[in-house]
Amino acid sequence: MKCLGNMERLHIPNDLMMQLFRLYEMKGQSYYYKALFSRDDEVMARTTLELDTQALAYFLKLSLTPARIKLLSDPKKDFVPKNRDEILLNNIKDILLRIQSLSDTFDLTTNEVKDLTLTLFRGYDDIRLIKDPKAKIDRLAKSFDELSPEDKLKKIIDQFHYHRRNNKYEIVQIMTNFYIDLVKLNLFTDKSDLIGLIVVYTLAAKYFKVCRYDSFFQALLPLQEQFGSAFIQASYNWSEGFSQTEAIQRIFVNILETLHKNVEVKAHEYEFERKMNKTNSIEGTILTGPATFSKKDIRNKHPYASDATINRTLMSLKERGVIRPLGSGRTAQWLRVAEKLEKFNPQQLDLFNHAD
C-alpha cells in the first residue's frame, strides 16, 4: 500500500490536468455511443475482443506465428490449444470476453481477483496467491508488512474503494497507484505484472465505456517500451512511499484519449453508413477502390455489414459483369472488370440556366 497510502503527496501538472479535462469531455459522449451503436453493439464488441487478444499476444511476446495468433483470437471460433502459449492466449480471450460482458456490474473484490487469476492460468500453470506461514492475521498484525498476501490484497482493494468514494483523487490516478501497488507487492506465485495489467484494464472498462468499442491493448502495444520505462521509474523509492507514478498515469490517460478519438471517428463513419443503403455503400467501395480486392478488404472497410450483405453484393456485381472471381476459397480475390467509377457519372447541375 505504498502508493495508495501516500496519495496526498501527489499533484497533477497543469498539462496533464488539461488533458484530463479533454478526456472527461470526450467521456461524456459514452451514452451517445451506446445508443448509436446499439444495433451493432455485439459486432463491435467482438471486433474489439479480437484486437485486444491479438495485441496482448504480441505484448506478452508469445511464441506463436501471426497466423496462429489471428486464428486463436477469433471470438467466433473455438480451437483446441496445442501448447502452453496457446492455452494462455485462449484463457486471455475468455477473460476479455467476461470483462466485456460484466464490466458494468464488476466490483473490485479479493475474490474477483482470485477468480480472475485462476481463470487466466487455467491449464497453463498453478499461479495463485502466495501462502506465507509467517504472516499474521489482520487483527494481530502491527504493520502492513506483517499481513498475509491475501490480507494485503484486501487492504489495497479497500484503499482503492476508500479513495474512489471520497472523490478526492481522479479515477485514473487511483487506478495507476493501485496498479503499481498490486504489481510491486508480488502477492502471486508468478505473473503479477500480467494479473495487474488485466485488473487495471477491467477497471478501465468499467469507468470508460469506449473500451468496448476500441482496443485498449492495441493502443498500449506501441507504447510498450515507454510503459516498461515508466514502471521502472515508478519502482524507484516505492518501498519508502515516494513512488513517481506520473509517467505511467500519463500513458493510461494517453491510451484512453486515443480510444475516445478513435471511437469518435467510428461514430461519424457509422452514422454515415446507417443513413446509406449498405449495399450501395459496398458497391461504391468496390467501384472506387483497387481493381483487385478480397472479401476481407470489403469487410475491413465495412465492419458493420453482415457476411450475407457482402456476399449478396458481390454476387449482384458478378451477375452484372462488373466484377469476376479470381480463384476460390477463403483467400479468393475479385477483379473489377468495369472501369473505375463507371457507376458514378456525376454531372454539373446548372441551377441558374433558364435557356430553352
Score class of each variant (00 low, 15 high):
Pro149Arg: 06
Gly5Val: 12
Lys266Met: 05
Met1Gln: 06
Ile95Lys: 02
Lys136Val: 04
Asp85Glu: 12
Asn166Val: 07
Asp138Glu: 08
Ile248Gln: 07
Asn90Lys: 15
Leu335Asn: 10
Lys191Val: 03
Ala141Gly: 12
Val322Ile: 15
Lys2Cys: 09
Pro133Asn: 14
Ile323Arg: 00
Ser235Asn: 04
Ile251Tyr: 02
Thr202Asn: 02
His268Pro: 00
Glu150Ser: 08
Ser215Tyr: 07
His11Asp: 08
Phe242Trp: 07
Arg312Lys: 08
Asp125Gly: 11
Ala35His: 09
Phe352Gln: 14
Asp181Trp: 02
Gln347Ser: 02
Asn90Asp: 14
Asp158Met: 13
Leu317Lys: 11
Val43Asn: 10
Asn91Gln: 08
His260Asp: 13
Leu108Gln: 11
Arg165His: 11
Asn237Cys: 01
Val199Cys: 10
Asp85Tyr: 13
Ala332Leu: 02
Ile298His: 00
Lys82Met: 13
Asn280Ala: 05
Pro66His: 11
Leu64Ile: 09
Ser229Gln: 09
Glu269Pro: 03
Thr292Ser: 10
Asn254Arg: 09
Lys134Leu: 15
Glu240Trp: 06
Gly196His: 09
Ser30Trp: 15
Ala291Arg: 15
Gly28Thr: 05
Asp181Ile: 09
Asn111Cys: 06
Gln218Leu: 13
Glu342Trp: 05
Pro133Met: 15
Glu146Thr: 14
Glu283Ala: 00
Phe217Leu: 09
Ala247Tyr: 12
Glu269Tyr: 13
Leu4Tyr: 15
Phe160Ile: 11
Lys142Met: 06
Thr176Ala: 13
Leu49Pro: 05
Arg39Phe: 06
Leu147Phe: 10
Ser30His: 15
Val210Thr: 09
Lys168Leu: 11
Glu246Ile: 06
Ser103His: 15
Gln226Leu: 07
Gln226Ser: 08
Lys61Gly: 06
Arg274Ser: 12
Leu88Pro: 14
Arg164Gln: 15
Leu72Lys: 11
Ile95Gly: 05
Asn167Tyr: 07
Ser243Tyr: 10
Glu25Ile: 03
Lys152Arg: 15
Leu221Gly: 08
Phe217Asn: 06
Thr331Gly: 01
Cys211Val: 13
Ala332Cys: 01
Lys191His: 12
Gln348Pro: 03
Ser73Trp: 05
